[in-house]
Design a protein around this nucleic acid. Structure first.
Lengths: 332, 332
DNA sequence: TTGTATGCGTTATCAG
DNA sequence: CTGATAACGCATACAA
């Protein structure tokens, strides 16, 4: 920039004014500067600008797994929204590990991101501390954190699962296996409650053997489904609390020579692109990924723009039960 | 940091030395500084550091669509690799738009990323100019660019498609529809060649009506498959050049009341997690996503570490035909 | 309307 | 082993 100034025979302040379009620069100088910029091949240095301005126009985003289609789509929407708003997004995947998350958020904060959007992991004091100490706006997506008061966009998980399980019960199923994720996660707790309430509302017993804890991954779903399917009194239906685990569960069915929905009915949380193309067409709870991403971006942008109330805003969205053909009436 | 120095009663240079672990700081001062840091709640400012050092420990990554499972997985691998190496990655999705790509790469360069990994779009001079003018290492993934000499990791697309089409021909298919992406993209051109060569090698005519151009999206695959399926002399098999388009194609089959593989055999480029769980189990060409991501990261890290030859290195990987049950012998 | 000087938080060079 | 000081590239208050 200093070179440009010299080349154009003006001061660097004038160049700066021109580049930012702020001050009124005479048409003649404007021309001189323009050509000088082209000659030199000048590009503004956003880092220096950030240091001076205290804003990086970058937001940090951490999710547990980008390969989980739910997060893939949310990330995609968020990325696009911020792209439109002139922000870059730094993406980290915590892989469900606490220490990863802490490190990554630390890196993000060091880099002076203007805001943080996180789908968090675990439930520890350190996270509260980090987020509490952050001087930038934070919006939580998908998963809440006890004791942390920030903007958030979440789903009514309890209601969604209640509806899905009730649907299965309506089909005549009485023993419904449930594959859960790590109960340290708020969404998982709520989904578990939805399951329990639906069972209880129908006067059905929820025995411990029907509920299997997984850790979000496909392999966990496989293992959990295997255990469920080996039970002496095998469940007639299985519900999986997320998408990767249902893939594992379907593999377990396949390996056991069982078919869905003839032998076992299956449903899961989170919709995916192929759900209504391949057989069985999976009955799922579709989260409004577009809305989730857009709301998260809006909350953040509002706060960045200073037009947000002081108190945290949490928007709660509703899931939608997509009934397809992976659940059949129970045979008695 | 200046506060820390005051609080600890030392100069800021000493604090800096301590933080970077570079110089030898006496044990006593070390203690004083450590507590001061904790008291103040000091965090090093990576932006200021970057400005001074000329390195951001950040790399820029642009892909056409994050929701395309191929890119999802590559992004995931790349992200993890750089995370391990202490780098952050800034992600952009070009959505197959040239101007997006140019803008985004510009933003990335402004932000002084240490390197650029791009799965590019289109084939225009401006891209060459931007990349040529970039003073940071660039590694191209998936798609090459004519006239640009940089590190790259690509697939032998021609060979992979040749193999897949030959497999279909071996099943007795003679009229094989081909759903292509935009031919401005190197991978797409190569895949098209693979198709043509396989057909020719078998003495089969490749008529124009059998080849449909799409634009990578599901809707394009739907439209293309519809056209193919409406042909007076309908093809007995269809190959799709990418994954989103095959989903569209399968929807077209479904809407026409056709089943796969009984009525039409289908195969596509790019494997996906559900391929061997749902019916039909899709026959695909699996790209070694893990290797692609790791090699890209390695090429970049090598160059960043200064331990790379001056001349560009392009590593070519091979796809693997995953034969499942979406292709049946042709009925005559 | 345009130029000069200062500081953003670091690191690095050089004296002490 | 430690302290003062000059950049890094930019924006801005203030002076001209």
């Amino acid at each position: 920039m200093i070179d440009v100034a010299q080349s154009a025979g003006v001061s660097i302040a004038t160049v700066s004014a021109f580049v930012n379009g702020s001050a009124n620069v005479s048409a003649e100088l404007r021309q001189r500067i323009e050509t000088a910029i082209r000659d030199i091949g000048y590009k503004r240095n956003a880092i220096a600008r950030s240091l001076k301005m205290g804003t990086t126009h970058t937001i940090g985003l951490t999710v547990p797994h980008i390969t989980n289609p739910f997060f893939t789509e949310v990330v995609s929407v968020i990325q696009q929204a911020f792209d439109r708003a002139g922000y870059a997004v730094m993406l980290f995947c915590t892989d469900e590990h606490l220490h990863n998350q802490d490190d990554q958020i630390g890196l993000l904060l060091d880099r002076m991101v203007d805001g943080l959007i996180v789908a968090r992991v675990g439930d520890d004091a350190k996270f509260r501390e980090i987020i509490g100490g952050a001087s930038v706006p934070v919006v939580l997506i998908d998963r809440l954190c006890r004791g942390v008061e920030t903007d958030a966009v979440v789903l009514d998980n309890r209601q969604a699962v209640f509806e899905a399980i009730s649907y299965m019960i309506g089909l005549g199923h009485r023993r419904i296996g449930y594959i859960s994720g790590d109960v340290d996660v708020s969404t998982i707790r709520e989904r578990g409650e939805g399951y329990r309430r639906a069972m209880e509302a129908a006067g059905l017993a929820v025995s411990d053997e029907l509920v299997r804890l997984g850790d979000f991954h496909e392999a966990d779903g496989y293992r959990a489904a295997m255990q469920l399917l080996m039970l002496p009194d095998r469940p007639t239906a299985i519900f999986s609390a997320n998408n990767p685990m249902v893939v594992g569960a379907m593999k377990a069915l396949r390996d056991l020579g069982l078919t869905c929905p003839d032998d076992i009915s299956v449903a899961c949380f989170d919709d995916f692109a192929w759900a209504d193309v391949f057989q069985p067409q999976m009955t799922t709870i579709a989260q409004p990924v577009q809305a989730i991403g857009e709301q998260a971006a809006r909350l953040m942008l509002d706060r960045l723009g200073g037009k947000a109330p002081a108190e945290p805003r949490v928007v709660t969205l509703r899931g939608r039960l997509m009934i397809r053909n992976s659940c059949a009436p129970a045979r008695r």
